[in-house]
Structure formats: structure tokens, C-alpha cells
Design a protein around this nucleic acid. Structure first.
Lengths: 248, 248
DNA sequence: ACCTGAACACCGTTCAAGT
DNA sequence: ACCTGAACACCGTTCAAGT
């Protein structure tokens, strides 16, 4: 509609992205702009809220227009992953402290996911062939080599690491979305309230059938997300070392 | 419509579930029957394919009718989990072989999920307060106690185990759904073909940026689902033992 | 109390038509 | 080649009305 050839319409030159545009900046569409909008919407309102239609609306067009640039929503999800996975940092392996480096790499994965809420959900069931995911896997394999981990163990560990860290990110995402949805018609529910609620569920379990959970209610609900993830990362890396020792 | 009071309509007694009914057995609705149909549909066609509407159709009614028995789809998902989680077997802890028992328990979780395809998807982001999940957690805690694992480690391990095993089940589910969808208009794609495809992706990576993945293409794609899960279970339990030793 | 039809506000995707 | 409007076949949920 608005082409670049329209000049001299009045006293001022018409600019395509004039500030008065009602949230519909008419540039040419592109995969890049579609991905930009999708990521922005996910960050703002969560994975579920992003649709072909919502993206199109923010771009000032209809959903059909997107299909000239992406085959379908699966491909769009793949593009989001590609974009985000490029942020994974990979360290130079140091045989003296490869295990600490590996733990840090895993935590970095989560940091990247957290910086792009919603994207982790798109990874479920995707075979991770994106360049970013590949670089990450190459980095993990290199660290394992530096630590003398047999290749087969390292390969399977790669798979496990990606699946677990992705699952954590997805779970956090679902939680955030739920909390936001609950807060839509009132104040958003606070994390400590939910923890307290879970604690009470444990504490009020029947003592005969659930003696441990009941008496350990506090222990079961101790620690925040970072504590739990830190523990899981420890378990995975220490477990990997233990298996490698056993194999040798 | 069809009530139990309709007798003597002809030579034979009218039975509510007469074989001639066109897939619409009109009994009274109930949470139980709704859950039955939902599970059956998930097993048949995967999580994505079951909706309030598809369930209602199989029950011979409209979607609105379901809302007299379940508050919404989230609650229905919770009911599915409750039903399935009841199948988790829990062993009597034996301090001599608690670790092997724990590994078996984790594999059992996956077996139950596999017997009810789609249900694992419903667990994402649910706080596992269902009786079945509770029994499972109690069982894991008891095994950890038998193994002398400190309570706090055991509690966090519970969380990690559930998240990882759920993630595996979900991933398998997504894969199955994708394979089935691809096979809708042709032959369903075989597992070995997909593995071969992934192998080729690794093998054709640029050698300068991905030396390890490229040369280890075979190692990266070795092993079936059970190999990978068995390895992960080993890592988690051995890692837990290692952390417990370090703490002592 | 339980069930229903019709409606509301959404989806992803396709397709003929426009420029 | 790129974009569009309109349509198709779906969603979850609500609500007034029926029995």
C-alpha cells in the first residue's frame, strides 16, 4: 500500500515510518522482522499469547501475509530457537577445571532461555539442528574431552543436559504465565504465597500414608529455582564423572 | 434424553448402551467417563488431538455439557494426571540395594507415562499435588533414607527426577505425534530414517567449526531411547550418591 | 441439578485475487 | 514476487434456556 515512490504529497516528504503511524509500521515484511515481533511478544505476554495473528497485527497486516516468509508455525518456532541459541557462550576448555566450566555452561543455557521467555517451549521435540544448538553441543563435547570423559558418555550427557535445562526453562515459563493469568483480574500471585501453599499441602498429608513428606514439609519446599537448578547441575556433572570413573 | 425408565417400547427391553447406537452412548455424564474418553483419545491420536469438543463428540453431546463436571481444561488435565499417577509402583526400601530400587522406580515412572501417551504433557507446570504423585515422592524419599541420603538432597532430587522423567515422556510424545502427522498423507516416517538423517547432519558439519560433532556423528546418534534414559538414570542416582558422600 | 444450542472471541492455514 | 481479504475448519468458554 504505502510504497517508497510516493513523494511530494504535501509540504513534507512522506516517511514510511512516520511517528503518527498507528502501531503499523509498513516496511517490507521479512523473516527477521517476524522473528523480532514474535520474541518481543513472548517476552511481554508469554509463549501462549503469541500467534500468527497476533504477530501479523503488530506488523500491521493479516496473518496470511506471514506465509510468504515462513512455511508455518513450526518453522517460525525453529527460527526463534536459531536466533536465541546463537547467544550460548562457549568457553575455552581448561583441563584443570573443565567440570566447573561445564556446570557454568549449563547454567548459561538457562540464563539465555530466561532472557527470552517462551522460546524454550518451542524446543520441545525439535531435533536441535540449529547452528546455535550445534555450537553448544560442540562446546560441551570439548569440555568432556578435556575432562577425559569417554565420547559415548559425553554424547549421551549432551542429550540429557539439553533436555533437563530445557525442561527447567519451560516449567518456569508455564509458572510465569499462570501467575500472570491469575493476576489479570486482581493482584498477581506472589511466589512465596505459592511456596507456602505447597508447604501446607505437604504438612497436612495423612501421617500414616505419607510420614516422610508430612514431617519433611519444610525441607521439601526449601530453596528457590537457582538452588534447585544448581543442585541438579551438580548431580549431573558429578554423576558423569562417577560413571566415567566406573567405566575406566 | 434416554432415561433408565423407558421400558416395554417393543418386543425387547431398551438398553441404554444398545449395540446399534451410533457411537453416542447416552449414559449420564460423569468426571470418570470424561476422563476415560480423554485418555482413550490421547492414546489413539495424541495430546494435541483431544479437545473439549472432541471429548464431547465421543460422548454424544456438545462441549458445553462437560462444564457441569469439570471447571475447565486445566482441571481436566489435573484429573488425567491423578488417574495415571495412581499406577506408579512403590517398592519396599531395602538398604542393601536402595540405589537399584531407585533406578527402577524412575524407569517405572516412564513406563507408566508411556502406557498413557499424552498425559505427561499435562504435568508441565502443574504442582504435583495429586495423590499418585505424592505416593511416588514418598517412595523416592523412603529409598533415599534407606540409602543414607541427607533429606535436603533427597528433596531436591525428587524434584529433579520428576522433571527429567516427565520431560523424556513429553519429548517422546511430541515425536510420536510428529511422526503420525507426517504419516497422515503417506507412509509414517520410520525411526531409523530419522536417526540416519540426524547422523548425516552431524557428518556434514563444517570440520573447522565442529570438529568433534562431525567426527563423532556415529557416537552422537548411537543408542535408542532406553539406552539414553538408562544412562540418565545412572547419572542422576550416581550423582546423588557422590553429592551425599561429599556432604558427609 | 444437569444438560443443551447458540454464540463469542479466538486459532493455523489456504486460496483466489490483487499489485 | 509479495501481499491481501475472505473463508475453512478448528479451539475454550459462557450463558440463557430448557428439562
Amino acid at each position: 500500500m504505502a510504497t517508497e515512490k510516493v513523494f511530494h504529497l504535501g509540504p513534507v516528504r512522506v516517511r514510511v515510518n512516520a511517528a503518527g503511524d498507528d502501531a503499523a509500521p509498513r516496511q517490507r515484511l521479512s523473516r527477521e522482522r517476524i522473528v523480532d515481533v514474535a520474541l518481543a511478544q513472548m517476552k511481554e505476554r508469554g509463549y501462549e499469547a503469541v500467534s500468527m495473528r497476533s504477530i501479523a497485527k503488530d506488523l500491521g497486516t493479516g496473518p496470511a501475509s506471514l506465509y510468504a516468509h515462513v512455511a508455518n508455525k513450526d518453522e517460525l518456532d525453529q527460527l526463534l530457537i536459531d536466533r536465541v541459541a546463537g547467544d550460548f557462550p562457549i568457553p575455552e576448555p581448561d583441563p584443570e577445571r573443565w567440570d566447573e566450566q561445564l556446570k557454568q555452561s549449563l547454567l548459561d543455557m538457562l540464563t539465555v532461555y530466561r532472557a527470552h521467555p517462551g522460546v524454550a517451549r518451542a524446543t520441545l521435540g525439535m531435533i536441535p539442528t540449529s547452528p546455535g544448538a550445534m555450537r553448544n553441543a560442540e562446546g560441551v563435547m570439548a569440555l568432556c574431552r578435556a575432562g577425559g570423559i569417554p565420547d559415548q558418555l559425553a554424547a549421551w550427557a549432551c542429550d540429557m543436559f539439553a533436555l533437563y535445562m530445557g525442561a527447567v526453562a519451560i516449567e518456569e515459563d508455564v509458572w510465569r504465565a499462570r501467575a500472570a493469568a491469575a493476576g489479570e483480574g486482581g493482584e498477581p500471585l506472589r511466589e512465596e504465597d505459592m511456596v507456602a501453599a505447597v508447604h501446607d499441602v505437604f504438612a497436612s498429608l495423612p501421617a500414616d500414608e505419607f510420614p516422610l513428606l508430612r514431617s519433611l514439609a519444610s525441607v521439601m519446599t526449601t530453596g528457590d529455582a537457582d538452588d534447585r537448578v544448581g543442585f541438579a547441575v551438580d548431580i549431573m556433572v558429578e554423576g558423569l564423572k562417577a560413571l566415567a570413573r566406573r567405566e575406566a
